[in-house]
């Protein structure tokens, strides 16, 4: 579903991504972890074309992301993305946030979009928050709305960039629960997270990044089962003691 082949990217002289290759098959959940600044967010943003890259090929569902003639808005509308800081639109209500792109991109009628929106709000257990503005939600609620907003586009895959790292500890689980359910329903997911409990529960593979390189890319059992070499072990030992 998502293939990343030999991707390199520079910000000016600074190389953020160095020959990265990985893939996420249909229905798979791949967790990406690694120290701060290792290029995880950049890699995920390259997947839906939010960041351009200079070398390599990324294809999503057979469509090359970097190609000149790719209809990026159309491609992006099929890939849901959830951000660390939620990024709900502050001037709109929760329901309007969920309906905007359904109406403007998928050209759904307002009724249809709202019906779908309410279903998804019900699913993330926020049906009573539909008329609120994002500022009046807790972090956990806001992130669940953001997930609902992404799901409203009926995506074929979902990207998550540290969806729980801006949350207070007591709210992390309410978001992870939604993600676990999504994973169990067979959604194709690429998830940057340091929640190794989540990885152990639903990940098919774990990718470890360091300094722009993919240092480790292994099945979950292999990744957590065998002692890992070098930086990955050091990193794991640090975050697992949290």
């Amino acid at each position: 579903m998502i293939e990343v082949e030999n991707v390199s990217k520079w910000f000016g002289d600074f190389q953020v991504l160095d020959d990265c290759s990985t893939q996420v098959d249909k229905g798979q959940v791949v967790v990406v972890c690694g120290p701060s600044g290792s290029g995880k967010s950049t890699l995920v943003k390259c997947v839906n074309g939010l960041e351009p890259f200079q070398e390599g090929i990324i294809t999503v569902n057979g469509v090359s992301v970097g190609a000149e003639d790719t209809n990026l808005p159309k491609l992006r509308s099929q890939i849901g993305m959830v951000f660390q800081n939620f990024e709900l639109f502050p001037h709109m209500t929760v329901l309007e946030n969920i309906c905007l792109s359904q109406m403007k991109v998928l050209k759904r009628e307002k009724d249809e979009a709202e019906e779908r929106g309410m279903k998804l709000l019900d699913r993330v257990d926020l049906i009573d928050q539909a008329a609120k503005h994002p500022a009046h939600l807790s972090g956990g609620q806001a992130q669940r709305v953001a997930i609902a907003r992404a799901l409203a586009m009926d995506p074929i895959a979902m990207l998550f960039d540290e969806p729980t790292s801006a949350l207070d500890p007591e709210m992390i689980n309410e978001v992870l629960d939604v993600m676990v359910t999504l994973a169990q329903e067979g959604m194709t997911m690429m998830v940057i997270t340091h929640e190794m409990g989540f990885a152990k529960q639903v990940a098919d593979r774990v990718v470890f990044m360091d300094e722009g390189r993919i240092e480790d890319d292994a099945g979950k059992d292999e990744f957590f089962g065998e002692p890992r070499g070098g930086r990955a072990r050091l990193f794991l030992s640090k975050i697992l003691t949290h």
Partner: peptide, 17 residues
């Protein structure tokens, strides 16, 4: 914040939208 633009683009909106 740039994240707002990214969030809009990520749902398939064009830059103009």
């Amino acid at each position: 914040p740039l994240g707002q633009t990214h969030a809009g683009l990520a749902t398939g909106l064009t830059r103009v939208q």
